[in-house]
């Protein structure tokens, strides 16, 4: 077993530097690497390019980095829940690359799978396709998209072991599943870090080879964005 365990979030993120490109898992506030985001705020690294489906909300998730102007460029599919984001984008302070969600996911997966580019029908005929190669397959037009190249991928999992094997819970898998292993270095923060042998190999979602560093997060707030319920009859 090759041990990937690091002591804490400081050690896991020790070499992240200004100007680097970082993938961050999560959908909305679900499954975001909370401890790592807090550490990025604390480290005060700047000019980051962040690849993340959303940009958090004003006071949580990546919104915390936006408030401190640590992000130079954001690559996302949907930013509707963050007023500060929208303000920085419309004023031109923040460079934003809006990308269709499935394309964003596949650009991560392509990087994870060693595929340099792929064709998708998403965005054909829209401004997303401007300047990109297009090609017809099976009578339908497609747009060529490139795999992402990132320095770090930071993902959050439910359980992990010291070999870096990961198991996600519910829809918190989202982009964590396709970002793990999609950058030069993948850092996993988990709710529960277990000794090797604790996890059933049949149940592993991401094999440890995709993860270079793993640590147990100190605490997880797991904020709910839209609390919707029904009454008991």
């Amino acid at each position: 077993m090759i041990n990937k365990k690091v002591r804490n979030v400081e050690e896991a993120l020790h070499d992240i530097k200004d100007g680097q490109t970082i993938m961050l898992g999560g959908f909305g506030l679900c499954g975001i690497p909370e401890n790592s985001i807090a550490e990025l705020v604390k480290k005060d690294v700047k000019d980051l390019t962040c690849i993340s489906n959303n940009a958090g909300v004003d006071d949580f998730g990546l919104g915390l980095l936006l408030q401190k102007r640590q992000i130079k460029k954001m690559i996302s599919s949907y930013v509707g829940e963050n007023a500060e984001f929208e303000r920085q984008m419309l004023s031109g302070e923040l460079d934003v690359e809006l990308t269709p969600q499935g394309t964003l996911a596949e650009k991560c997966r392509a990087a994870q799978a060693g595929i340099p580019a792929f064709f998708t029908p998403a965005g054909y005929g829209t401004e997303v396709a401007e300047g990109k190669e297009t090609r017809e397959f099976n009578g339908k037009m497609h747009v060529m998209e490139l795999a992402y190249k990132a320095d770090f991928s930071i993902v959050k999992a439910w359980k992990g072991d010291e070999a870096g094997n990961l198991i996600f819970k519910g829809t918190a898998r989202n982009f964590n599943g396709c970002m793990a292993g999609a950058a030069k270095i993948t850092i996993a923060e988990v709710e529960e870090l277990l000794p090797v042998g604790s996890l059933d190999p049949n149940q592993i979602h991401i094999p440890g080879i995709m993860v270079q560093r793993i640590f147990q997060g100190e605490k997880f707030e797991k904020r709910i964005e839209q609390r919707t319920t029904r009454k008991r009859d």
Partner: peptide
């Protein structure tokens, strides 16, 4: 599209799970 097939109704009050949401970020 955030990664679930077989979605049911909203949870009963007190049974919300932050890890189980739809694409509208609703529990």
């Amino acid at each position: 599209e955030n990664g679930v097939l077989g979605m049911g109704p909203f949870p009963f009050e007190g049974e919300e799970d932050a890890d189980i949401i739809n694409a509208g970020k609703q529990t």
